[in-house]
Amino acid sequence: MAQRLATEYVNATMQLTEFQMNQFLLTADTCYISHRVKVLGGGEQMIVLEEAGGEEVCLSVERKGDIHWCTLSCRVVNPHLNNAVRKLFVTYKGTGTVNRIYHGFTMIYYYERGSVRRISELTSSGSKLIYQHKHSLSEMMNLYKSEAIEREIEELRRNVDRLLDRRNALKSAMNPDDIDGELAFIAHRLLFLEA
């Protein structure tokens, strides 16, 4: 198995409520990691996570209403610090790019609200797509719950009724081909939608 050399967080963002921020600060300190909060001008804060060996990661925090917006761009080498930042990023549904760097290649993960949307492998010979998000379960459920298709089917059925009434009202000497063409199109569309 390849040994990870470092992890880079590129333009990573997270949104935390006041409760989540307090919870994060309470759980940030472990036997390997400590934290400190720096207050900057303009009310912004900087949270510094520091590993016992001296490596540190800085998170810029800006408060907008009840939400703390954390931004992070860093390179992490230490496994304990890397684990702490990874847990923070996943727990609070981070968005951004995470580069996992190995000897000879880099795996690039694109996250959106804590979910991996795409994975690419970058080598000296180029980039290769490994994974592309299709639809999440919640997106599929929203599509399933949508009534747009049912409304379209109902409208098509009303059109069929109207066209059949027009066709039945035609005198026997008139040609019903136009109406039959419309009915065939609607039948094909209904078959597609009901599938």
Rank of each mutant, 00 (worst) to 15 (best):
R151I: 03
T106I: 15
I33R: 02
M107Q: 13
L88P: 08
F89W: 06
G104C: 01
L190H: 04
L26T: 01
V57A: 09
A169P: 09
G94Q: 08
Q23D: 10
G43E: 06
Q3W: 05
F89I: 08
T71E: 12
H80F: 14
R157P: 07
H80L: 04
C74T: 15
T13F: 13
I179G: 07
V37R: 09
E56Y: 07
I119G: 02
K38M: 05
L40C: 06
L16R: 04
I101C: 14
S138Y: 11
L190N: 05
G43L: 08
L170V: 08
T30H: 04
F185R: 13
E150M: 06
Q15N: 15
A148D: 12
M141S: 05
V90G: 05
N175I: 07
N22R: 07
E50I: 08
M141Q: 12
R117Y: 12
F105C: 02
A195F: 08
L49Q: 02
G54M: 04
R189S: 05
R113V: 05
N159L: 12
L129Y: 00
E121G: 05
L16T: 03
D29L: 01
R118S: 15
I47H: 07
C31L: 14
A52E: 05
V76A: 01
C58L: 05
E62S: 14
E121C: 09
Y32F: 15
M174K: 13
V160F: 08
D177C: 05
Y109F: 15
E152W: 00
T17F: 12
L88V: 10
G53H: 06
S138C: 06
E152M: 04
L156N: 09
R63S: 12
E154N: 08
E121W: 00
E154I: 01
G96Y: 12
V61K: 02
V57R: 02
D165F: 09
L193E: 05
L59A: 04
I47T: 08
A169T: 11
K128I: 00
T13Y: 12
A6G: 00
V10W: 04
A2Y: 07
Q15Y: 12
G104E: 00
A12K: 00
F19H: 11
L183Q: 10
H103K: 07
N159V: 01
R75T: 14
S34I: 02
I33G: 03
Y111M: 14
M14L: 15
L164V: 13
Q45H: 10
G96C: 09
W69R: 10
K145M: 03
S115M: 15
G54R: 01
I101N: 12
M107R: 11
F24H: 06
D29P: 06
D165C: 04
N99L: 15
M140E: 06
M46P: 00
S146N: 10
E121R: 14
Y144E: 01
G114F: 09
Y110I: 11
I119F: 07
F19R: 12
K64M: 09
L183F: 14
C74D: 12
A28S: 09
L137I: 04
G114S: 07
E62I: 13
L81S: 07
K145F: 03
V85N: 11
E62P: 02
V98N: 07
K134N: 10
F24C: 08
A169E: 14
K93Y: 10
R157V: 06
L72V: 01
S138E: 15
S120K: 12
G126F: 04
M1H: 03
V39I: 09
E139Y: 07
I119Y: 08
E8N: 09
I47R: 06
A84L: 10
G54D: 06
C31T: 14
D177G: 07
S115F: 13
